[in-house]
Design a protein around this nucleic acid. Structure first.
Lengths: 372, 372
DNA sequence: CCGTATTCTGAATCTCCTG
DNA sequence: ACAGGAGATTCAGAATACG
């Protein structure tokens, strides 16, 4: 039995569609009550099936607050696939033929999700990468920092035409460059992060509003109906309301649903003419020395010297420097050579050729000039 | 029947492994001839199963040279999955227990590949995003510009330990920041792109050498054996040779194999000092704290303190520490002092003298410099 | 009150050798 | 195989504390 947390007025033109409502219950069961082909956009943030083992501690021994909630536990890949198949079928029935769907996930689950949705006849339009400016580091140094999550954007079927893609607006909001499949957005923190009375986060995986804004602005129109079958803390609803879209959320957990309802009630819709794309965060123009080597601007085996040619180091293929038997970054080796505590390797080291000394900083500028 | 394009001298220590060789034939059949658990790293760039529908034209009506080769055509997802399963099983047998595998793909195939490899027992370590500085634009304006491809980095099994990850060198080459899962690398073009006598590209999906360099530098050591079951234009082989790794390539198409062979023969390996393995701290020879006491670097009876002088312990002649009435290793006592359950005593404890605090790790470095 | 320093935290599949 | 212990390991940003 679903309990509805509804604040929307009754609508006579679409009586069966519980607009701007959070349906409390299992999403497959709740979606069966909705009419077919009735929503314009789906955003789904399903459980990731993280399969965490033991505790993880930071180098300072503090404990990482893991996502160990029961809703993220599955017995096997098979069980996860069955779950995935069920909800993907349920939302597909409700999706208009011209509608599209977004799903977000990590490497733990996204391959399963992508495979199942292809098998069900969805047609992938893009995979989009959410690059995090501030991901949690890899504390043990045994893998690459997991600095992104993946979104799949899919149409209802291969022959679906007429889906919404606000190409011109996106391009205009992106310095007249085509919108790309890699998005740089910070994680949800600070004032945006919902906290309980105890000061603890309400939901372990709250998504940033900037991410949802990019989704809704790119693939929906004002007045469209956006369905989120894993509503959680209600980011989809909050952004939908702010941007003049309707939402339907489904959430099993009453506490999450209540927090989401309160959050959404506090949202002020933006004036229609103010609804434009949030400006993209400027890309940090950070260039690593390894990039110069990779791009062939500095050759492995080349000798670097300081401005007065007192010290010499050898460039290695991995973008480190060798100074005697010591290997390290341009900064650390620069400091070591001088006997200093710290050194800006970019200004310290130079390449010598027929024309004389060239600062490696000049090569970095060349990389930046090419658009990083 | 496989025809080998071999330029490597015979090796008596590994007679069954055709090092630095391109095996011509189907990869599953060819891999059956190789011994089990014999290669250190796999890089695979399988067909993407692109499912192109009709010609793609640019706004000026010029035709885009699409990947429509017969090797990229599969009748169904089912056929593609069967193909994927077959080659993933074949390479897994050949992979050492400590080895890892990279697979690259796009949204057309990467979900299938990821699902199958998880089902086969591979353990995903990371998914890595290759962001292209210069992707092909989306000419229709109906999707996001496909500006990235996805790589999956996986170990042979969930319990596989001891795989190679050159964390410290990668960090040093990246402004002393740990390496992330998003890589920015230009596509292969210009002089690097192999062209035939007719000026046309030899292979439709030639990968940039910078991408392979990052793969090999991060997850292999000099002298390792790298297997590429879809050798194509031989980028893996060219980079392996340049960086002092051995390669084994498998390629069905004789023309591709011949072009790859010629390309690799022209490669000059980097100088040894540009590619020797950087010593990692965790691989440095172990030094017992007792050795420091034995060698007179730390005096029995000396007081050790933490960096903020909050705790104090006494050095004993046998290399243990006394903290109140408790006696134990530098690590145990460090943990006890802080009330933590673990502690790296080497970085925690310091000796105080007229010049201030000196970490006992500095004395350990001195011992190592003397040759343990 | 302000500027600086410290602390806290985030969708995380996070070690390896010896006995 | 399993237990125990040595010893390795973090970045950005916000919040809080301090001087």
């Amino acid at each position: 039995m679903a309990l509805r947390l509804n604040r929307a007025p009754a609508r006579h033109d679409a009586p069966a569609l519980p607009l701007d409502t959070i349906l409390i219950g299992d999403c497959v069961a709740e979606l069966e009550k909705l009419p077919s082909a009735s929503v314009d956009l789906i955003f789904a943030d399903p459980p990731y099936n993280l399969q965490l083992q033991g505790d993880l501690r930071r180098p300072d021994q503090s404990l990482v607050d893991a996502v160990d909630d029961s809703w993220d536990q599955f017995e096997s890949f098979q069980a996860y696939d069955a779950f995935t198949r069920a909800w993907l079928m349920a939302v597909r029935r409700v999706l208009k033929p011209t509608g599209t769907m977004w799903v977000i996930g990590s490497y733990h689950n996204i391959f399963r999700v992508g495979t199942v949705l292809q098998d069900l006849g969805y047609w992938v339009l893009n995979d989009v990468v959410w690059r995090k400016t501030n991901p949690m580091p890899n504390f043990r140094g045994r893998r690459f920092t997991n600095a992104h999550e993946t979104l799949i954007w899919a149409a209802k079927s291969a022959d679906a035409k007429g889906y919404t893609f606000n190409y011109e607006a996106l391009k205009a909001g992106n310095e007249d460059l085509q919108p790309r499949s890699d998005w740089l957005i910070p994680i949800c923190s600070g004032g945006e992060r919902l906290k309980g009375d105890d000061g603890k986060k309400v939901h372990p995986t709250q998504k940033p509003e900037a991410l949802l804004a990019r989704v809704l602005l790119s693939s929906s129109k004002p007045g469209d109906v956006v369905l989120d079958p894993f509503f959680g803390s209600g980011t989809t609803g909050a952004v939908a309301k702010r941007l003049g879209r309707h939402f339907i959320g489904v959430e099993r957990d009453r506490d999450y649903a209540a927090a989401a309802r309160a959050r959404i009630d506090a949202v002020e819709p933006e004036a229609a003419d103010a609804i434009v794309q949030a400006p993209a965060k400027r890309e940090a123009p950070r260039v690593a020395f390894a990039t110069l080597v990779e791009r062939g601007l500095v050759r492995p085996g080349a000798k670097l010297v300081d401005a007065r040619r007192r010290y010499e180091a050898t460039v290695r293929a991995d973008g480190t420097l060798a100074f005697g038997s010591v290997i390290g970054s341009i900064h650390r080796i620069g400091a070591l050579a001088q006997g200093a505590d710290a050194c800006n390797g970019w200004s310290f080291w130079h390449v010598e050729d027929a024309r004389g000394l060239t600062s490696i900083d000049a090569f970095r500028d060349a990389v930046r000039a090419e658009g990083v």
